[in-house]
Structure formats: structure tokens, C-alpha cells
Design a binder for these strands. Structure first.
Lengths: 233, 233
DNA sequence: AAGCAAAACCTGTATGACAGGTTTGAGGGA
DNA sequence: TCCCTCAAACCTGTCATACAGGTTTTGCTT
């Protein structure tokens, strides 16, 4: 499973540490052996162990902190976000392709959210849609509420993989969102965007999957139009 | 954008290197400055630069090789695969949740593949489905052909993000696939699984999105049933 | 101009050192 | 007996140096 990473002492050490985590069934928060102990047990220098630790920390598989021992980490979207940004910056991925993926998974997300949301989640989602209305003239705040809105929907789907993916797209979205906003020049087009979010929230709160899907489709139709208008290939 | 990674010289250095890549519009294959030069320019030790390099290499943002300078890498699913495996091993994610996500995106993938596939891709996909039939009594080979089949579909969708995601699920799939196979005890259930793949391939080859979607749905219904039978929560 | 070999450069790994931050455990007081 | 305190032990972050290979560049030779 981790043979792709081998070639070199650091790669071997990454493998050994991963194996140690699995074989001992370590859970998030559990502590790993110290660098000194690992370097002795594996017969490599502390340098090598440290570089292996950094690699695992970059993937958010472990967590490092000064003075403390390394701990097993909870999966997190930070690294995926950077990877996707890299893909976009190197022109392998374009924004429309990301919108296609987001539309696909967010359509599923609202279906699940409409079915599985708790009442507290419904309240939260409605509140975030309301926050967006209030931030209508404050783009930075509006964007944050928009991102939080989609994150809350993913959470309500009760499938952490969807949360992970929505999080993974957040980095690049943060970079492109202002462009999309600027390309909605009229008040009417901006109001429409806000209204669409409210429709999604209401449908999820009403536990109406079909209407939620329709509203989400409208949201993405509108967003993709804005992105195309901005010329984001 | 990369402030989440800061705190500490290594984090700062990761940020500086990322910025260097973006500001100079470096593309995959382009070489970065040597460790010595970076350590001099950033005023940190080579140790720090090396740990930053390892972090970026773990996310497949750069590529390292002995003797050569570090180069900008093409985005790759290897790291995502490890991250998702970690999520499953730590019980944050379960297999059914992964199947729900895969079903969602693969349904979209076959739609796109049916529309956008090249003739060569159609041939390849049909060939892989045929290979699966031939490997019917060789689980290891069958699994590889199965994975290659889904990878080929993602490629034919012409959206690299789908390829990335399918690749990201491959690591954990490789670990659970044999369990699903074992839980199809009868010859009939195994034949059905092979036939379903052939149906998907034929629908894509025939450029019939609706039929492709139906066949894919059948595939996942059958797979999820097998996984549930195996008791993979 | 083409080819070749040496020099310069670069990365991988090891060792030792020291400044902080954290955990542990011994001792003392209530 | 239990709890608190604090110093010792432990641990990570960073630096400097060294050297064994591997790679690129340079400059000479043909």
C-alpha cells in the first residue's frame, strides 16, 4: 500500500511509521514514539525520522508540536486544498471542471441533508443563508458565509467524505469567488444569487429533497454562468 | 492561502516556496532553486528547507530526486489515497460512505464518458471489461482490471478532477475489494458483477448516457449489497 | 562542431549541539 | 491519603558541519 513512497530511507521510514500506526490501531490523539526512539529502533538518523514525520504531517496523518510527542491526527482537508490549488495553478484543472464536480457532489449532498439533517443543522443552515443576505454589501464576509453555508450542508449530509471534498475545494474557491461576484454586475443578479441560497436552505429545512436538488441546480446554473461571464476557462 | 501551514520556520518556508512557484508561474517539470540557495535567501538552515521540501513532496506539489534539483510536480492522487486510507483506519470514514460518494461521482462520470469518449477510449473500456471476464478465476488480476476499468471511465469523462478522485479511492478500494469478492459466494452473483461491467462499457461505447447511468446504478446496487453482506460497516 | 572528462554543484544521510517547551515523578504539606 | 509544587528528564525545533554518491556544467581535446 505504501510502496509508492519508498525508495530511500525516508520513504522506508514513512512506511514503517504508517505500519506502526495501523498495527497498533492507533487512533487520533494517540502518541507516537519519540524521534530518538524511532531512530534507534529503525536504525536511521534522527534527520531521517524527522523528514518522515514532516511528510506524514503534510498529509495530516500525524500532528507535530514543539516539545510534545507526535500524535495521530484526524483526517483534514487542508492538504487536499493545497493539492487542488496546485492543480489549478499548473493548468491541469480549470475552474469549470471544479464546478462540474462540485455540482455533482453538492446535488447529492442536499438530497442527503434534506433527509438526514438534525433540527439544529436546519437552523444553522437557515441562519447562514440569512447571514449572507445581511452581508450583501460586504463581499469578504459574504464569501465566508457562503463557504460556511456549503460546509454546513455537507456536514448535514452525515457523510464525512462529502465534508472532506467540500473542504478540499474551499481553497481554490476562496481565490475565484471574488471574480465570480464581480461578474454579477446588476443588483438583480446579486439578489438572485442570495435568493437561491435561501431557497436551498428552506428546502433542506422542509426536508424536501427534490426541491433542494432543484434549488441547488439553479444555484450552479447561475454560478457557472457568472464564472463563464468572467472568462474563467 | 497557506497561513494554515505556518507557525514555525518550516511552515514559513513552505509558504515561501509555494509563493515562489506561483509568482514565477512555474509549471510541472520546472526546477526550483537548490536547497543551499533557498536556505541562504530565506535565512534558514538547510535542515529547514529540506523539511519544507519533504512536506511539499508529500503532497506531490514538488518532486525530489537524488542529485537533481527539486522540480514542480504534476498533481497526483497518491497522497489523497493515503489520507483517505487514514480516515478509514481511524474509523472517521466507513466503507459505505465511500461507496455513496463513488456512486455519486461515477454516475456523473459515465454520463460524461458516454458523451465525450473518443473511439480509442471506447475500445479501451470495452477491452478492460473483456479482461475482467477472462480473469474471472484470478481475483488479484480481476481486481486490477476492475480498478483500471473505472480509471479509464474517469479519463474518458475528460475532467481530471474525476480522475483524481477515482484515484484517491483506489488505495482503500484495493484493501476492501477482496472482501467484497469473497462475499459473492455463488457463480451467478459473480457472473452478474462481470456482466454489469460489460453493460456499462457497452453503453458508453454506444454513447448512450441514460443506459450507462442505469448500468452504473445497477453496478453499485450490487456492490453495496456485497459489501453489506460482508459486514463492512 | 562534437565528444569527453574533470570540476562544480546538488541531494541524502549522519552526528553533535543547544534553546526552548512538555511530561514525569519525587518530595512535601494539608 | 491526597494534592500541590517544582525540578529533573525528556522531547522537539533549529543550526552547523561533514561526507558519500549522483547530476550538471564547463572547458578542453579532437
Amino acid at each position: 500500500m505504501e510502496q509508492a513512497v519508498s525508495s530511500g530511507l525516508v520513504g522506508d521510514t514513512i512506511g514503517a511509521i504508517s505500519r506502526h500506526i495501523r498495527e497498533n490501531d492507533l487512533m487520533p490523539g494517540d502518541r507516537l514514539p519519540s524521534e530518538a526512539i524511532l531512530s534507534k529502533e529503525l536504525g536511521v538518523s534522527r534527520t531521517v525520522v524527522r523528514e518522515a514525520f514532516r511528510s506524514l504531517a503534510a498529509m495530516r496523518i500525524i500532528e507535530l508540536a514543539t516539545g510534545k510527542r507526535a500524535t495521530v491526527a484526524q483526517i483534514d482537508h487542508g492538504a487536499m486544498s493545497l493539492m487542488i490549488e496546485h492543480g489549478v495553478h499548473t493548468d491541469l484543472i480549470n475552474i469549470q471542471q471544479i464546478y462540474d464536480v462540485r455540482r455533482t457532489i453538492e446535488t447529492r449532498i442536499v438530497t442527503l441533508a434534506a433527509i438526514r439533517r438534525s433540527d439544529a443543522e436546519a437552523v444553522k443552515i437557515l441562519a447562514l443563508a440569512a447571514c449572507m443576505q445581511e452581508s450583501a454589501h460586504n463581499p469578504a464576509g459574504l464569501m465566508e458565509h457562503d463557504l460556511a453555508f456549503h460546509t454546513a450542508l455537507a456536514l448535514a449530509s452525515r457523510n464525512p467524505v462529502y465534508s472532506l471534498l467540500i473542504g478540499a475545494f474551499q481553497g481554490i474557491t476562496r481565490q475565484t469567488w471574488p471574480i465570480g461576484w464581480e461578474s454579477r454586475p446588476t443588483q438583480a443578479s446579486r439578489d438572485l444569487m442570495l435568493a437561491t441560497h435561501l431557497n436551498i436552505a428552506r428546502a433542506v429545512a422542509a426536508s424536501d429533497p427534490q426541491q433542494a436538488v432543484d434549488a441547488m441546480a439553479q444555484h450552479f446554473d447561475e454560478s457557472v454562468r457568472a464564472v463563464l461571464a468572467a472568462g474563467l476557462s
